[in-house]
Amino acid sequence: MKVKKKKNMTIYKISNILESTYNDKVMSVLDHFSGFYKIYESGYKEPVLVSGVDGVGTKLRLAIDYKKYDVIGEDCFAMCANDVLCHGALPLFFLDYLACGKLDYTIVKKIIQGIAISCKKNNTCLIGGETAEMPEIYKKNDYDIAGFCVGIVEKNHIIDGRKLIQEEDILIGLPSSGVHSNGFSVIRNIFSTEDFMKSFQEKPFYETLLIPTKIYHFPIHTLLKKFLIHGLAHITGGGISDNLYRILPENLSAVVKKEKIPIQPVFNYIQKKGNLSEHEMWNTFNMGVGMIIVVSFKEKYHILNKLHILGEKPFILGNIVKGNKKVFLK
């Protein structure tokens, strides 16, 4: 009963954080067993719901060790929202699953605040979630988190690279904010606790590693109002090759020119310290590319110009050629 009472008190205390993200489409309250969100007045003719689920991986360990709990929430939202974005969807609402060894309101609040801040920035409602206290599974201060994002898109506006990408299309890269949320098992095998505290670019190295995953909602949806995007690839685990492969048609391949990518110093530092091969690096990390936009070569300059106006730093990193669904890193 004490655990249940404590959990209920935590829900009550964080309710104002969730409610700060609500709009007039939210119909539920936290006492409900589920979240309600009305879409019948959304203005879509043939609305399609697009869902995504993800976590933060072992970046969690680093965030917990250095008590950067808000980062956990921001990353969780970003990983889910960027995936939903890849099909042209506008995020509607978000839910989280938070598991821990022992419930600590202060920590839970910081994690939820991280999610809520990202939700508000991207017009997404944090309408609920689940907090599970499992002392037999997790240590006292250990946490795990998963997020669930649901978006909406008009049926005839769904971005599906396998159907839209054409020969001679151009690959435009949007920079990542850093390592994002992938490759941390490799990183933690390379660097010691002392290494994480060493200065890198005038601050402790762990601070660079914990920079939150960039969210690409604003630039992509701004482009979609004017341009036809043939494909979007969120560069996560498996690097450029694995994620770009997922959106290619069977009869086309992608050529990526590594020298065109502005590789961030953090990746060179990781490679040198871990004595990692080029193959290991490019198949584990984003290498400075957070999102790849596939567009017609006829529109590349207009799109690049628009992205620059939006404050982005885009770069052309390759193109689409005839082939049998392969990604060539050159």
Rank of each mutant, 00 (worst) to 15 (best):
H157A: 12
V289L: 13
K300C: 02
I316E: 14
A63Y: 00
I165H: 08
L95K: 13
M291E: 11
I292D: 02
E41Q: 12
L304M: 13
H230N: 13
K109Q: 14
E130K: 15
T124A: 13
E136M: 12
K260N: 15
E154N: 08
N156Q: 12
Y97E: 13
L329C: 04
L98D: 02
K102H: 13
W282Y: 15
E46P: 02
D242I: 08
T236K: 07
F285D: 03
K6V: 06
I39N: 05
Y301C: 03
A233K: 00
P249M: 08
D54V: 06
S192V: 07
S118Y: 05
H32G: 05
K121H: 09
K7D: 01
V48P: 03
K214F: 05
A233N: 05
Y138E: 04
L223D: 00
K272H: 10
K203G: 00
I117C: 02
P175V: 00
W282T: 02
I247G: 08
P91G: 09
Y37P: 01
P204K: 10
G57N: 08
H302K: 15
L95Y: 02
G239S: 04
K225A: 07
P219V: 08
K2G: 00
G290K: 05
N123M: 11
Q201L: 15
K273T: 09
I292E: 07
G43M: 00
I220V: 15
H230C: 05
I165E: 08
E194P: 00
K258W: 04
L244N: 01
N123S: 13
T236Q: 01
C76P: 04
I137G: 00
I111R: 07
G274D: 08
F184C: 05
P212A: 11
I17R: 06
V266A: 01
I159Q: 10
G239V: 06
D242K: 14
V295S: 09
N16Y: 13
K13Q: 12
A233C: 09
F328M: 13
A146E: 12
L103D: 01
N324F: 11
C100P: 02
G161P: 06
N324S: 13
D75Y: 03
G239T: 05
E250G: 02
F205Q: 10
L228I: 13
V108H: 06
N283V: 00
T10C: 14
K260S: 14
A81K: 06
E167A: 04
E278F: 03
Y269V: 03
K102D: 04
C119M: 10
K326C: 10
M9H: 03
E202G: 05
Y69V: 00
K203M: 10
M287P: 06
L310S: 06
D104F: 13
D195H: 03
N16V: 05
V26Q: 09
I11V: 12
K2C: 04
T21L: 10
D75K: 06
V294C: 14
D24I: 02
V3A: 12
K300V: 14
I320M: 04
Y216C: 01
Y37F: 15
F200T: 03
E167D: 11
I187S: 11
G88Y: 07
S176M: 10
G274Y: 07
F227N: 02
M27S: 12
V108T: 14
I158F: 12
C119D: 11
Y143R: 11
E154S: 04
A233P: 01
T236L: 09
S34Y: 15
L103S: 11
G161I: 00
W282M: 02
L164P: 01
W282N: 09
K313H: 11
I115D: 04
I39Y: 09
K25Q: 09
N189D: 14
